[in-house]
Design a protein around this nucleic acid. Structure first.
Length: 576
DNA sequence: GCCGTTTTCGGCCCGACTGTTTTCAGTCG
């Protein structure tokens, strides 16, 4: 019988083995374990499921896992233990994952601290540092000790990764300020932010300047900087009071494209590009693409990709999930653009839990050049929001008609709903009412913990209702707060294909539901998508950008998204 | 330990910064 060991736990053990091997100074193996740990962490199926279905061979089929690590995973799944790990751990029995959270502490330092001072935990570390014991160690000093104490301090306040929606506005502010300096010729935001990942670990800013010193000095003295971890001519790094780590790199103009590419990542994408360069006998680094000592590309990213024999790859696709192969074959999709949406299809007003009135939203939508919006308040089962029943929603229609008359033809206000999906998959408004609405969205707001089959059946029953147009926030996850409910998304996507239901990409920064992998599945299956803000107040209307970013990360094109269509064409696309 | 249009052996990304050194090891991305 196979033990139920989670991917997360398996990944952690493999990563720790890598770190222990690093301590021993063993070359290459640490990378292999690190890669394997990452591979397991990114699997969309459980390792135990994979092993049960296909045995050792199936484990070896995972890229980054070979015969040796597959056997170790097998041992872990069968016995619940991993002898190799236990033996390594016996030599340096420390809380590795805890201590590694201190910036600047790597495996070698941790080993030394254990051997010299017996430090096993964060608490031991703090005690030793406060007692001044670390400064006295060989190869450590007063500065190292101070940095450890600072690191401990930050750890106590640490927030982990931040939401894209929280980081992007701050990043743009930094970009604007630095961009205004006369020494700055060009500036770009790189890193996972440029790839528009859902969460951001740290921010990379790239600058072209012939006089970097004043730029660096300005950067490290910005008011929100609480800690400076590096301050050099080409690289500086700071921590902001929000907990965000920001790196600033200065590069020469002729290396701008190569540096932008390098610091945008992803790491896997870059490594593959480097390997391609090497295969041609060239060298690729952050300064350019080189044939011997001669730079043959790198001033722009476009030039770089062209020199490597492929089409330009949008940052949102650079995850090494097939985009390089597609770019070589000139088969990349033309992604939906940031200006391609004509309307917003999920808005909560002050009729339920939204903050603003229908008219205020309408005016705000006109300012944002929307052509149409759908008003989609909650329904009666969500009593705490004052959800609408069949009678009350008809009153709302009257108000919509009134506002429509007042604002004229600049914006079409569609009558919609975010109708509750009840436990058995039936809906919270009668069919007579649903049939009169322009846009029927349905969503799960209760019974999140139903078994997978039942939850899946429930949602499929709901979208099979012929009045239903869109499934809102299909998986219900809240990033960093709540897991998605247990669902068979393949079955949902298949049902959506059959019924013509549209799946929503909810642009709310802590939802971004669907995630990229499911968007790609929808695109492949020909299931249409809607990108909506789920606005609960007027400022939320600006979140569409995050939804578009998510769609781009899922390789969606303009034609995959229903609300890129003009009103008439959009309404025709809906089921009825 | 993994991997393969350099394919079953022999490579494995590599440069910047810091802190401790006095030429470099460790860490990071």
């Amino acid at each position: 019988m196979v033990k139920r060991i989670s991917n997360q736990e398996t990944s952690r053990l493999l990563a720790e083995i890598g770190e222990y091997l690093e301590m021993e100074g063993i070359p290459f193996k640490p990378r292999a374990y690190e890669k394997a740990a990452q591979a397991v962490g990114e699997l969309d199926k459980g390792v135990s499921e994979i092993y049960e279905a296909g045995g050792l061979k199936a484990l070896e089929g995972i890229p980054g896992i070979g015969a040796s690590i597959a056997k170790k995973i097998e041992e872990l799944l069968q016995t619940g233990r991993l002898k190799y790990y236990d033996e390594l751990k016996k030599k340096v029995p420390v809380d590795l994952s805890g201590l590694r959270k201190i910036e600047g502490l790597g495996p070698k330092s941790i080993k030394k601290l254990y051997e010299e001072l017996g430090i096993k935990t964060i608490a031991d570390l703090e005690k030793a540092a406060r007692a001044g014991k670390i400064a006295k160690l060989e190869h450590f000093g007063a500065k190292s000790e101070e940095n450890i104490l600072k690191g401990l301090d930050f750890l106590k306040k640490a927030t982990g990764r931040l939401l894209l929606g929280a980081v992007l506005p701050k990043a743009r502010l930094i970009e604007k300020r630095l961009g205004e300096l006369k020494e700055v010729e060009r500036i770009a935001l790189a890193g996972s932010l440029r790839r528009r990942k859902e969460t951001i670990g740290d921010l990379d800013v790239l600058v072209v300047s012939k006089k970097p010193k004043p730029v660096m000095d300005f950067f490290v003295s910005m008011p929100e900087v609480v800690h400076i971890s590096a301050h050099g001519e080409t690289k500086s790094a700071v921590k902001l009071e929000s907990g965000l780590d920001v790196d600033l790199r200065v590069v020469p103009a002729e290396s701008y494209g190569a540096a932008l590419n390098y610091f945008t990542g992803s790491k896997d994408h870059n490594v593959t590009l480097r390997e391609m360069a090497m295969a041609k006998g060239w060298k690729l680094n952050e300064y350019g693409l080189f044939k011997g000592n001669k730079q043959i590309a790198g001033k722009t990213e476009e030039e770089l990709y062209a020199a490597l024999g492929m089409d330009y790859i949008e940052p949102e696709m650079r995850e090494n999930t097939g985009e390089i192969k597609a770019a070589k074959k000139h088969k990349l999709p033309k992604l939906i653009g940031y200006g391609d949406l004509l309307g917003d299809l999920q808005i909560q007003t002050d009729w339920t839990d939204g903050a603003d009135s229908i008219e205020a939203y309408a005016q705000a939508a006109i300012q944002r050049r929307h052509k149409y919006i759908a008003i989609t308040d909650h329904t009666k089962r969500l009593a705490m929001t004052g959800g609408l029943d069949e009678k009350k929603i008809r009153k709302q229609w009257a108000e919509i008609d009134q506002v429509q008359k007042k604002i004229g033809p600049k914006l079409k206000i569609l009558k919609g709903t975010e109708c509750d999906i009840l436990k058995d998959g039936s809906l919270d408004l009668d069919d007579e009412t649903l049939s009169q609405l322009d846009v029927v969205g349905v969503a799960v707001h209760s019974h999140f913990d139903l078994p997978r089959e039942e939850q899946t059946r429930r949602i499929i029953r709901a979208i099979k209702n012929p009045n239903v147009d869109i499934l809102f926030h299909p998986t219900g996850r809240l990033i960093g707060k709540r897991e998605a409910y247990d669902l068979d998304m393949d079955a949902i996507i298949k049902a959506a294909k059959e019924t013509g239901a549209v799946l929503e990409i909810d642009a709310m920064p802590d939802r971004l539901d669907l995630k990229d992998e499911y968007i790609r599945k929808c695109v492949a299956a020909g299931v249409k998508l809607a990108i909506d803000t789920d606005a609960h107040s007027i400022p939320h209307l600006d979140f569409l950008e995050y939804g578009i970013a998510q769609a781009r990360r899922g390789w969606a094109q303009k034609s995959d998204v229903v609300n890129t269509r003009p009103l008439e064409a959009f309404l025709k696309l809906l089921k009825k």
